[in-house]
Amino acid sequence: MDDAGRLRAEGYTLLAHDRCHDGFLKLDRYQVRHRRFDGTTTPVLDREIVVGADCVGVLLYDPVHDAVVLIEQFRLPAAVTGEDAIQVEIVAGRIDPGEPPLAAVEREVREETGCVILGAPERIAVALISPGYNTERLHLYCAIVDAGAAGGLHGLATEDEDIRVLVQPYDTFAAWQTDGRIANLFTLHAGLWLALNRDRLRSGA
């Protein structure tokens, strides 16, 4: 079903759709009407949507050492909003066209940390990053690794990536989630999941 058919089926009417920008990020403009909760219909609404890719995020956890493998890298959007330019995050990246999410998990972990995943990654969630204006969807996983083998600088030279691996005890990671050191929402989401599942993961270590 095309966009128009899908929107009509869900109580929306798509009146126009144009691509305004077609770079690394794509920007589409829509004109739509939708049914309100009271049964009436809205006037014609102009909406712009950033067309994002499907992505993966991977929380790397070592249950033996009770440690988390994080990464640090420069983020211009963070800098221009007044946040720290160097952001502490979990591994994340785009899923290539036709690539299964788990294949992207293994590729991104290898490219950004050099770590080897032990066993099958566990899915945490699939969620929209910011559904008010962005179609980007995140496939979030937890993967077990040996934190003792993690460290160094990583990233693809072809993409000008400059990534530093950061290994922290779980207690430090938990503290960073509450004191503002971590400002990345999907890293915070993964951290909350780990708080709920840490005992289970450690009992199987």
Rank of each mutant, 00 (worst) to 15 (best):
V88G: 03
E89L: 12
A92G: 14
G93R: 03
R94S: 13
I95C: 09
P97C: 11
G98I: 10
E99Q: 14
P101R: 00
A103L: 13
A103W: 10
A104N: 02
A104S: 11
V105P: 02
V105F: 08
E106D: 13
E112S: 03
T113Y: 01
V116A: 15
I117F: 09
G119K: 12
A120G: 02
A120D: 12
E122A: 12
E122M: 06
R123E: 10
A125E: 14
A125S: 15
A125Q: 13
V126E: 13
V126S: 12
A127I: 09
A127W: 12
L128P: 14
I129N: 14
S130M: 11
P131L: 03
G132V: 01
Y133P: 09
N134Y: 15
N134R: 15
T135V: 06
T135D: 05
T135P: 04
T135M: 03
R137L: 08
R137T: 15
R137V: 12
H139K: 05
H139N: 13
H139E: 08
L140Q: 13
L140V: 13
Y141I: 04
C142G: 09
C142A: 15
A143Y: 10
I144H: 13
V145T: 10
D146L: 09
D146E: 13
A147Y: 13
A149T: 11
A150P: 01
G152W: 01
L153C: 10
H154P: 07
G155R: 00
G155Q: 01
G155K: 02
L156N: 00
A157K: 00
A157P: 04
T158Q: 01
E159W: 05
D160L: 09
E161G: 02
E161L: 00
E161Y: 01
E161N: 00
E161I: 03
D162H: 04
R164Y: 02
L166H: 10
V167Y: 06
Q168D: 11
Q168G: 08
Y170F: 15
Y170R: 05
T172L: 14
A174G: 08
A174F: 06
W176D: 05
W176N: 03
T178Y: 08
